[in-house]
Computed example of a mutant assay.
Amino acid sequence: MKTVSTTAAAEHMLTTGKPYTAALLAEELGISAQQASGKLYNIRTSSKYNAIVTELPNRTVKLTAIKGRKQSLNSLMKLAIFGNRAA
C-alpha cells in the first residue's frame, strides 16, 4: 500500500472538484479507507483547507480551497504555460 500526504490528497480533491467519502478517496488514490479517512479528517479540521462537509452518516467532504487557492497547482501550471487557451 502506498503512502499519500494530506497535501497530495487535497490537491487531488481540488483538481476533481468532487465531494469525497473515505471509500471513494481511497479507491482513487490507491490507499486504504482508514488512511483516506485520516486525510479527510485532517482536511476537515485544519485551517489550511476550506471544505464543505456533510453530516454523518455518509459524510462527504468537498474541498473548495487550499490556503485560499481555489485552483489546483496542476491547473495553475497549465495556465502559466499555455495561458488562457485550452491545454
Rank of each mutant, 00 (worst) to 15 (best):
K62M: 11
L14G: 03
L56M: 14
G30A: 11
P57E: 10
K62H: 08
A8L: 01
L40W: 06
A8D: 12
K78C: 09
N42F: 09
Y41A: 14
T16D: 05
L79F: 07
A10S: 04
L56S: 15
L24A: 15
R69P: 02
I66H: 07
A9I: 08
L29A: 05
E27H: 13
T16H: 06
K39R: 15
G83H: 04
T21M: 10
T45M: 10
N58A: 15
L73N: 10
T54Q: 00
K78Q: 12
A80L: 10
P19I: 00
G68W: 08
L24R: 14
I31Q: 12
L79P: 03
Q34V: 15
E28M: 03
G83P: 02
L73P: 04
P19N: 01
E28P: 04
S72R: 07
A33P: 13
Q34Y: 13
I66A: 01
A65V: 06
S32R: 11
R69W: 04
S37W: 09
V61W: 02
E28W: 01
A26R: 09
L76M: 14
T3M: 11
A65E: 05
S75Y: 00
A51R: 03
T64D: 02
I52Y: 09
Y41F: 15
T54R: 00
S75I: 06
L56A: 15
P19F: 02
V61I: 10
H12F: 11
T16Q: 07
S72N: 05
R69K: 13
L76E: 14
L76H: 03
L73W: 03
S47D: 11
T60L: 07
E55W: 09
K18S: 09
L14E: 01
G68T: 07
L63V: 03
L40M: 09
S37M: 11
G68E: 08
R59Y: 07
R44G: 09
E28R: 10
G30P: 09
A23G: 08
A8I: 06
L14T: 01
K62D: 05
H12P: 01
T6M: 04
S47T: 10
E27N: 12
K18R: 14
A8G: 04
G30N: 11
A51E: 01
A36H: 12
A22T: 08
Q71S: 14
R44S: 14
T16Y: 05
Y49L: 02
K70S: 10
R44P: 03
N50Y: 04
T64F: 00
F82D: 12
I43C: 00
L79G: 07
I43R: 04
S47W: 02
E28S: 03
G38K: 12
R44D: 06
A10P: 00
G83A: 00
Q71T: 13
L76Y: 07
L14P: 01
T21A: 11
F82E: 12
Q35W: 08
M13C: 03
